[in-house]
């Protein structure tokens, strides 16, 4: 469990650096360090599927952040209306902390999850679906409609970009 705490301390430090850094590029790199730490944390918790996913998505989002943010002058205005901003921040932080405390009381401990539904998946998954990887079995069999919804969302993104970037029928 000690490596988990080391990773958590690393990620929290990187997040603080990302908030406090003056340069936009260094804060983006610190965000990438947080994501890589999260991927290693998934590996420590014995979830290689999630680790692969987190790693590749982190690389892609890091490239997008570097290309999309560093060349522009983003308007960053901290002057004016600071009373309202501070009050709103404190209010939302209090609401989040109270609700998180109230809901975390009912969560089971780390390592002893609720197994009401997933017991059936684990015991019958290999026989009924024929997939060695139980994550793929659940994703593509028991939760196939979820996967279809996710693909539909990405397909809507493709259609939107193709409609914006088209050449035929564009004026001027």
């Amino acid at each position: 469990m000690i490596e988990m705490y080391i990773l958590l301390i690393f990620m929290i430090t990187a997040a603080i650096i990302a908030v406090a850094a003056k340069d936009l590029l260094s804060s983006v790199v610190a965000i990438g360090a947080v994501g890589i730490g999260l991927a290693m944390a998934f590996l420590v918790l014995k979830a290689p599927d999630l680790a692969i996913m987190q790693l590749v998505v982190e690389i892609l989002s890091l490239i997008i952040l570097v290309r999309a943010t560093t060349r522009k002058d983003l308007p960053f205005n901290i002057s004016g209306r600071w009373v309202f901003n501070t009050l709103a921040t404190i209010l939302f932080a209090v609401v989040f902390l109270v609700s998180a405390y109230a809901s975390l009381k009912f969560m089971p401990d780390l390592g002893s999850p609720l197994m009401r539904v997933s017991k059936v998946y684990l015991s019958e998954g290999l026989v009924r679906t024929g997939a060695m990887n139980i994550v793929a079995a659940i994703n593509l069999n028991y939760r196939a409609l979820d996967t279809l919804g996710e693909a539909t969302m990405l397909f809507a993104a493709i259609i939107g970009v193709l409609a914006v970037a088209r050449k035929i029928g564009r004026k001027g």
């Binding site: 892609l60 793929a136 593509l140 693909a151 397909f155 993104a157 493709i158 970009v161 914006v164 970037a165």
Partner: peptide, 24 residues
């Protein structure tokens, strides 16, 4: 489940994320 759906999902996800990258 092991061949057709992963290929379709791979095509859609690859094209979708690249489209998001292009758009951004």
């Amino acid at each position: 489940n092991a061949v057709i759906i992963p290929i379709c999902e791979m095509i859609i996800v690859g094209a979708g994320l690249f489209a998001i990258f292009v758009a951004l």
